[in-house]
């Protein structure tokens, strides 16, 4: 009888989800945005995306070979990092920018800290922050006019918008017919990809909703210079990298809180910091640093947002019980 009784520790039920499956879903979700980028910015976009993706995968492979760790290129996480990084770059950057960014993202931000699952910030954004600090000129001026693909000298619509000027028709913003980074121009393509991820249950709606909601509300209040409560929340969300960041980067499992409530807090925090940097900071756009800063705050959020214990009425009680070491 005793040998019939099987005793194992949790988990007892395993989902069929794998890292590879999830990452493939993310790649699929990024296809519309990538295609839109190539349609609008042509061969330049293709070469930047290819350079960042290939060098990310190569960097992961070579690093893991060099330190004799199992090679994890097959789980597509490096490819996702590279593609995401490529989508945050302006179209006309020299090709060494995506290459250096990808190598930094994979080696310094991800592998040095132990690889997938133990990195403390989103690798793609860390790579972008590094190239932004290394070559600020390229990162803020290498714009191309969509479709005609010649070098653009004007300010980006986000810049015009911040100055209180008109920032193009909503249709243009939705389709992507405007200046901007590769993946941030076409709002429809990003929303399509985000919707796919939400549908497949890959990401939690709380982070993007809280992020974009906070940002939109903030833009509504402060968006118009010299007047309160007259901003344009829709353009505030559609312009810049907020959509891409909210759907694809802030939702990174490794660097976002695990509890539902914590995720809401993270979204709100990222929205507030984006707003702060956009309107009161020196940088034109704050999505990168907003998400990176909230990545850093994630362990803190996880520490303070304790979920309600089953059978206990109040959070306070549960927290006290947890402190006492009880269940």
């Amino acid at each position: 009888m005793a040998d019939k009784l099987l005793i194992t520790s949790s988990p007892h039920i395993r989902a069929a989800k794998t890292v590879r499956g999830i990452m493939l879903d993310v790649v699929i979700a990024l296809v519309p945005a990538s295609v839109a980028a190539v349609v609008f910015f042509g061969i330049k976009a293709l070469s930047v995306l290819a350079a960042s993706t290939i060098s990310a995968v190569l960097a992961e492979y070579l690093y893991e070979k060099a330190v004799r760790r199992p090679v994890t290129v097959g789980d597509f996480s490096a490819a996702v990092t590279g593609l995401l990084l490529g989508l945050t770059l302006p179209p006309a950057v020299p090709l060494y920018v995506p290459v250096v960014g990808s190598v930094f993202a994979i080696v310094v931000a991800k592998q040095v800290f132990g690889g997938l699952g133990t990195n403390f910030v989103n690798p793609a954004l860390a790579g972008r922050a590094f190239v932004l600090a290394a070559w600020p000129l390229h990162m803020t001026s290498a714009w191309l006019n969509p479709l005609t693909m010649d070098a653009a000298t004007g300010a980006t619509p986000l810049h015009a918008f911040k100055g209180g000027q008109a920032a193009g028709s909503l249709v243009d913003l939705l389709i992507g017919n405007r200046l901007g980074s590769l993946g941030e121009t076409s709002a429809i393509a990003i929303i399509l990809g985000g919707a796919y991820l939400l549908m497949r249950g890959v990401i939690d709606y709380r982070i993007p909703v809280a992020y974009l909601g906070t940002l939109g509300f903030g833009v509504f209040i402060f968006g118009k210079p010299g007047a309160l409560f007259q901003g344009d929340p829709l353009r505030g969300i559609l312009l810049g990298g907020a959509l891409l960041g909210a759907f694809f980067m802030a939702t990174d499992y490794v660097t976002s809180p695990v509890t539902p409530r914590g995720r809401t807090y993270m979204g709100i925090g990222a929205g507030l910091i984006t707003l702060l940097i956009r309107y009161w900071g020196d940088y034109p756009e704050g999505v990168t640093y907003a998400i990176l800063l909230m990545n850093l705050a994630t362990p803190l959020i996880d520490k303070f947002v304790v979920p309600k214990y089953y059978g206990y009425a109040h959070d306070a009680l549960a927290r006290r019980k947890a402190k006492e070491g009880g269940r």
Partner: peptide
């Protein structure tokens, strides 16, 4: 031979260089 990366002259660049060199040399 390439466009200089201004970040390497700043303190963050110093930390990154130190960390990378320390890793490589120790390996």
């Amino acid at each position: 031979l390439f466009e200089p990366m201004s970040v390497m002259l700043t303190p963050p660049g110093g930390f990154i260089t130190l960390g990378v060199l320390m890793t490589v040399l120790n390996i």
